[in-house]
Each structure stands twice: as C-alpha cells, then as structure tokens.
Simulated scan of single mutants.
Amino acid sequence: MYHITPETAADHWEVEALYDTCFAPGREALSSYRLRDGVPPVAGLNHVARDAGGILAGAIRYWPICIGAHAALLLGPVAVHPTRQGEGLGALLIEGSLAQAAPLGWSRVMLVGDAPYYNRFGFTLLTDVVMPPPTNPERVLGRALVDGAWEGIAGDVTAWPH
C-alpha cells in the first residue's frame, strides 16, 4: 500500500535522487530538461508515493509548455524505484495525476516516452508536434484531457514563458 501526496519542497532532493537511480547519467542533458529550465513545475500535479514506512517509492512531475501558441502539460519525469517496479505504482501515479489535470484547467498533455507503455494510458503518437532535438519523433506522445484538445495543434514545443 502506498500513500500518494503532493510533492513538497522537502521532497525535492529525495525525488532527484530517485530520478538519478532510475534514469541514465546525463538525463538532464535531454531536450525536455531545456523546456523545464527556470520554469516551476505545475502546482497540484507533482506527487510522491511512499510506502507504509515513509520510504519514497515513486514520483511524478508535470511542467507547462507551449506548442505554437497553445498551452500543454509535459509529463515527466515519472519514476518508480527499481525495487518497486511491477507493482502498478507507475500506473497509479500517472492515472491519478492525469485525473487531476483537467479540473485544474489543462486540456492536453504530452510526453517523450515508450509508446508500448504509454498507449495503455491513452497516449498516441503526435506526428505534428516537434520536440527540440535530439528527440526521437517516434517517442513524442500526447493525450487529450478534453475531447478534441489535440485537433489543430501542431508545431514546435517551446518553454513556457517566464
């Protein structure tokens, strides 16, 4: 059983250590990190999952981005500690946070990830959305949080104005 709560400032370094454990060295060199530079994550959508002993087992974050003149959420990173993978915690974090996004006024979310994993959460390939290089276009996925949210959305992904 996990207790999922909003991420707080006190969780920051522990979450960063989890991301370091789960992702390859140099993760912060990815183009998605350039979109996050100097931009605070979206309040109310970033969560941590802790076990009964208070040990961090997973985390998820969201960032605001622009696609052309349109706002969108960038999901990620999402991580589950390697000793906790396969328990459904990633799905719990993703589904729970996505359910909270539309009531906060967000209509679309995108990510860079593996389609076979994220398809089950309703993410599909965004052929008209261009992430900064070096991003594999086959990994640029999106999900509408309200009907029709991706219709007519195309162009370059850029950082949220700050």
Rank of each mutant, 00 (worst) to 15 (best):
W13L: 11
W13M: 07
E14Q: 14
V15F: 01
V15W: 02
E16D: 12
E16N: 09
A17T: 14
A17Q: 13
Y19K: 00
Y19F: 13
D20W: 06
T21K: 11
T21Y: 05
F23L: 13
A24F: 07
A24V: 13
A24H: 12
P25W: 13
G26C: 12
G26H: 11
R27Q: 10
R27V: 12
A29L: 15
A29T: 15
A29M: 11
A29I: 06
L30C: 10
L30N: 06
S31C: 11
S31Q: 05
S31M: 05
S32M: 15
S32C: 15
S32K: 10
Y33K: 08
R34T: 11
R34Y: 08
L35A: 12
L35M: 13
D37P: 05
D37T: 09
V39K: 05
V39A: 08
P40Q: 14
P41S: 13
P41M: 09
P41G: 08
V42L: 09
V42C: 13
V42F: 07
A43I: 01
G44L: 04
G44E: 10
G44T: 04
G44N: 06
L45Y: 09
L45N: 07
L45T: 08
N46Y: 04
N46V: 11
H47G: 09
V48M: 04
V48Q: 01
A49L: 04
A49W: 00
D51A: 09
A52K: 08
A52C: 04
G53A: 14
G54M: 02
G54P: 05
I55F: 08
I55N: 13
I55S: 13
I55K: 15
A57I: 08
A57M: 07
A57D: 02
A57H: 06
G58S: 10
G58Q: 07
G58V: 09
A59G: 10
A59M: 11
A59L: 11
I60T: 04
I60L: 07
R61V: 02
Y62L: 00
Y62Q: 00
Y62K: 00
W63F: 15
W63T: 08
P64F: 13
P64L: 12
I65S: 02
I65C: 05
I65R: 00
C66G: 04
I67S: 06
A69D: 15
A69M: 03
A69K: 01
H70D: 13
A71V: 09
A71P: 02
A72G: 11
A72I: 01
L73R: 02
L73K: 01
L73H: 00
L74K: 08
L74E: 03
L74S: 04
L75R: 02
G76L: 04
G76E: 00
G76T: 03
V78D: 01
A79P: 07
A79L: 12
V80G: 00
